[in-house]
Design a protein around this nucleic acid. Sequence first.
DNA 1: CCCCAGGTCGTCA
DNA 2: TGACGACATGGG
Length: 277
Amino acid sequence: MKIQTDMDLQKTLFCGQFFRSQVQEDGYEIFFRDKRIFARKDQGNLLVQGQVSQEEIRDFFDLDRDYKEVEKALRKYSFLKEPLDLARGIHLLRQDLWEVIITFILSANSNIPRIRKSLFALCQNYGPKLEDDFGPYYGFPQPEDLRDVRREDFREKIKVGYRDQYLEKTTKLILAGQVNLEDLKKTDDPQEALKDLMKLSGVGEKVAHCILLFGLHNWRGFPVDVWMRRILKENFPGRKESDYQELAQTLFGPYAGFAQQTLFYYAKTQKMGGKKE
DNA sequence: CCCCAGGTCGTCA
DNA sequence: TGACGACATGGG
């Protein structure tokens, strides 16, 4: 499959929104929604192998959105210009809600390589065994797959540390219907969604915004993490940290999530100096 | 040995 | 509300 796009595959996969991909000799192995694909970029084309439809690819990689328009709208903020240039080509992936919930519960007070490791271990231990033309692989475990897992096993096999109880409790809450994922997907009020998400164990305000943005694909989401605090403090001295969330919503409105991802990528790249994490 | 990593939770004023 | 420490684990 060959699709023309300006998306930068490398940046999109490794900017910190997604953790289930691996570098191959020539491209990337990518796991999403129980699918496994191999993808690479050749000139302006995205080349994809795997048992997926073009519609699925266009949807997951958000290929039908006009990112130029978004960038244009955000360029009025001078402190965003350099980050926007650097992050050009990043698309926000339309990931599965449940997977995003688990992913960002694990992200709290952790680091990207470790999050990636834990997620792969989670799939290997509890995910469904699947197979495609390229061979066997593991899908992401569903809530039912984690129903009877003991927290000690989360800790010992997945190395999630004290987050073991978050996984256990959140799984139970969702299985019990205390938080209904299908209803969440239909919610159009972001505040309502955030409030509901924060009922889950291990989900505070920051993680809830990650889930809103990456799992519900609502760009009103703006996760305020250590990097956002540093950047906002620099550009808006005098503002209280407790106002940062609202400040970002006011400034960036419907593009808040993309602005956040842009700033996050910029901050990390500056700090890393091109190193891999 | 230290500090940090896409924070959250419980507690106490 | 607002501040503070605990919490597993791995890397630098």
